[in-house]
Design a protein around this nucleic acid. Structure first.
Ligand code: ZN
Ligand code: ZN
Ligand code: ZN
Ligand code: ZN
Lengths: 129, 129
DNA sequence: GGCTTATTGATAATGATTGTCAAAAGCGAT
DNA sequence: ATCGCTTTTGACAATCATTATCAATAAGCC
C-alpha cells in the first residue's frame, strides 16, 4: 500500500506553485530554500510517481533534462520558455489528426507523439538578446 | 578552415550505413568493432558537427540519450519504430506553420520545436502484440 | 503502544557528455 | 617533399543528471 508522507505532499504543492516546467534539481533547490529538509532522491522519486499517476506532465528539454509540471487535464502540448520555464498549454486538433494519419499511412501501430515548442517568452527575450 | 580527416569521413559513412537513429556511444562501438581506432570524443564531436551542418539529424530518445541519423534533406521530422529503430522521414508544412504561429501568438521568440511520432512498424507489430 | 513494512536520505555508483591539453595531422606556402 | 602554422585528435579527467544502496525512520494497522 502507498503511504502518505509530508515529502510527497511537499513535492506536490511545490510543483503546483511553479508556473512552468521545472527539473527535479530545481524543485529540490526551491524546497530547500524554503527550509524543507527533503532529500534529492525523494524529489526524484516523488516526481516520477506523480508523472506515472498522471498528476504531473513530464518532458525532456532540448538539453536532455527531465522537466515536470503539475497537470491534471488531458492530452495537450506545451510552448515552453527556455529562460524562465513558463509553459503555455496548447491544443491542436490539427496536429493530433496529422500524427494519427501519418502513422496509419505508414502502417505504424500504437502511435504516440512528442510535440513541444521551445523559445523565449516576451519577458525573457530582453535578457538574452 | 575545417579540415578533412579520415575520422570525420568514418563517422559520416558509419552513420550512412545505419538504418535508424543511433547514439554516439553505439556508433563508436560499431566503429571499434570494424577495427577503427577512432576516439569516443571524436565521434561526439563529429556527430555534433554533422548535426550542426545539417548532414545529420538529431533527437533525444525517451531515455534522454542523443540519437543521430544521416540526413541530407532539409528540416523534417520522423516516424520512429520503437522495435527496430526504423525511421521514416516525414514533412508537414501544416505543423511547421502551426508551430510558428503558436509561438508568435504568445509572443515567443527564437522558437524551435520537437515533433516526433513513435510507434511500431508493420514488421515489428507482430512481435509485441 | 508495538509490529510490519514502505519510505526516506546521505552517499556512492552509474552513465552520458564535455573539458583538457600535449601529440598528431592537415593544408598552404616554400 | 619540407616547413610552419593551426586545427584536430584522443586518452583521461571532470561534470552533471539520475539511479542504486541500505541502514534508519516513520506510516498504517492491530
Ligand atoms: Zn521566460
Ligand atoms: Zn498531441
Ligand atoms: Zn520496426
Ligand atoms: Zn518542423
Amino acid at each position: 500500500m502507498k503511504r502518505n508522507t509530508w515529502q510527497r505532499e511537499a513535492v506536490r504543492t511545490a510543483l503546483g506553485t511553479q508556473m512552468g516546467f521545472v527539473s527535479a534539481q530545481d524543485l529540490h533547490s526551491n524546497l530547500k530554500g524554503t527550509g524543507s529538509q527533503i532529500g534529492l532522491a525523494t524529489v526524484y522519486r516523488a516526481l516520477g510517481d506523480l508523472a506515472t499517476e498522471g498528476e504531473a506532465d513530464s518532458l525532456q528539454s532540448p538539453e536532455g533534462e527531465s522537466l515536470y509540471r503539475a497537470c491534471s487535464t488531458g492530452h495537450h502540448h506545451h510552448l515552453i520558455c527556455r529562460g524562465c520555464g513558463l509553459a503555455v498549454e496548447i491544443e491542436a486538433d490539427d496536429v493530433e489528426q496529422w500524427a494519427k494519419s501519418v502513422a496509419a499511412l505508414h502502417g505504424f501501430s500504437q502511435a504516440e507523439h512528442v510535440v513541444d515548442v521551445f523559445g523565449y517568452c516576451s519577458a525573457c527575450v530582453p535578457a538574452v538578446g
